[in-house]
């Protein structure tokens, strides 16, 4: 089991490190599965004995699967689904706006350093990342100087 989980984690990290945001999303899916699996197996694995209290009994008798990790995983699955849905829409909308799903070309929030070379977007109809970045930067500068503070 440990090796399986390890392989899943390795695969997800490899995907997360990709330029391609869709691959990053895949990495996210794989990583949450791996994490759930980790929690599950760390809680001890008992075959074929769900934590259900038998009729007539007052509590769990005999060897049973550990109910606590199961409860945690249930929460985790749902949350990671929410995260994935949001991330998916985010990637999709980003693609619509910026015309790329290459994370290297998304530099609006962090404009490129002067010596960094950002590849041009593959679609010439869409906006130039560097221009967009500069424009956001200018806007911030304008605002700051309008507020009377020194942008430097």
């Amino acid at each position: 089991m440990a090796f399986t989980v390890g392989a899943m984690a390795a695969g997800s990290v490899y995907l997360l490190l990709s330029h391609n945001l869709v691959r990053v999303l895949f990495g996210l899916i794989l990583l949450s599965n791996a994490a759930n699996f980790v929690i599950f197996s760390a809680g001890g694995m008992v075959e074929g004995a769900p934590p259900l209290i038998a009729k007539g009994a007052r509590d769990l008798a005999g060897v049973h699967a550990n109910p606590l990790p199961q409860a945690l995983i249930l929460t985790a699955i749902v949350i990671s689904f929410g995260l994935l849905a949001f991330a998916l829409v985010l990637v999709y909308r980003t693609y619509q706006e910026l015309g790329t799903i290459d994370s290297d070309r998304m530099r609006l929030a962090e404009p490129p350093y002067d010596d960094q070379d950002i590849p041009e977007p593959e679609n010439p109809h869409r906006i130039h990342v560097r221009d967009a970045a500069r424009r956001v930067g200018n806007r911030v500068d304008n605002r700051m100087s309008a507020n009377g503070s020194d942008p430097a």
């Binding site: 440990a2 989980v5 390795a10 197996s41 809680g43 007052r58 509590d59 109910p67 606590l68």
Partner: peptide
């Protein structure tokens, strides 16, 4: 991946503290 595996191996080896699970099992 290797670190996760190693971590798993060492965790599985440890005795699982069942206090909380037992609490839930008996109070459920």
């Amino acid at each position: 991946g290797a670190v996760v595996t190693a971590l798993m191996l060492s965790v599985i080896d440890l005795p699982i503290p069942l206090d909380l699970s037992d609490f839930f099992a008996s109070r459920s």
